[in-house]
Design a protein around this nucleic acid. Structure first.
Lengths: 174, 174
DNA sequence: TAATAGTTTCAATAATTTCTGAATCTTGCT
DNA sequence: AGCAAGATTCAGAAATTATTGAAACTATTA
């Protein structure tokens, strides 16, 4: 039976994506829901998700809330239907840009703040105190600031032109 | 008292780095030890780490083992000394390259494998079956393969030339 | 080789994170 | 307003992950 193959592919992909998610501080259910929506041709209801992933209603609801907060899942109203449907960004590049933007906001920006604050604090000490520590923190800060700037520039480019750009840079095949 | 300032900076930095670590699937202790070694002018003994972080001997030992497996911490022998010292890569760019390499190996490469396998499996179905699913998985696979290639090219560049390159690309200031 | 400084291991426990499901809330239909 | 379909919330339970600490192991020195 052919659809058995499709089902096993879906399952395998969803499970793997779930594992990857947990390696990255995104919980398993969130990542699984995302995987499921990503390969679904049509938006799915919370109920359908529940059934597919064999998880509870509450869990689905919470995970969807989080995914929506990340901006990678959106609610879809079907006219004349009471129940809500959910779908995820289907363009891979757009999707990863959204994730990158969110992680930058949540992780990189606060780190830059902490580093700035601490570097400033060390600058109030006599110039021969804590020299090494100050240097190290300054290097780290510079690294994050550069990364942040590069990211902002990249984000300004359209995904396609970005690809082309990289292609030119490295002349990689295909 | 001036060193109070230094101590509070160290603590603040170590705690923040620990939090960041856990957002990324690296455990808190590992990230804290890394932070501590990163700003320490000299290699530290397991004992010193234990005292600074107020954690147990066993925990320090396990975390160090992991950090060494990641390649970002190394044992340092001091001649004529019985106890071992530990130190981390101090060059920020080198450090992040090591981390990137390891994450690629642990996360990206296996994901590519899974995607390839599943795409191949879907190709055994009649061409009109599972069209959408196949397309989506192919797009994702292409994305990861491109990323992987770009990463390999970047890794081949020396960190400095990379910076210059990016500078040219975007003409960003400083 | 025995004593000992130092390190590693791992079973038990603690802490944290995730998930469940019943109660509550919301919405829209009659 | 009353009813019912559907969604959300959240306290408690379950699962997972991190940490402790005591025992075992591994040099190194005398």
């Amino acid at each position: 039976m052919v659809t058995n193959d499709l089902e096993s592919v879906k399952e395998n992909f969803i499970l793997h994506w779930g594992e990857m998610g947990s390696l990255w501080g995104i919980n398993r259910t969130m990542a699984q829901i995302h995987a499921l929506l990503f390969i679904s041709p049509e938006p799915l209801s919370a109920n359908a998700i529940m059934d597919e992933l064999k998880t509870s209603r509450g869990n689905v609801s919470m995970a969807l809330r989080e995914l929506i907060a990340w901006g990678i899942v959106s609610r879809v109203h079907k006219k004349g239907e009471r129940r809500e449907y959910y779908s995820t960004e289907k363009e891979v590049w757009v999707l990863f840009r959204m994730i990158a933007r969110e992680r930058k906001k949540r992780e990189v920006d606060p780190t830059i703040e902490v580093l700035r604050h601490n570097v400033a604090k060390l600058h109030t000490l006599p110039p021969t105190e804590a020299v090494y520590e100050r240097e190290q923190l300054e290097n780290l800060l510079e690294f994050f600031e550069t990364g942040s700037k590069v990211y902002e520039e990249l984000e300004a480019q359209a995904p396609t032109s970005l690809l082309k750009l990289l292609g030119q840079m490295f002349r990689f095949r295909s």
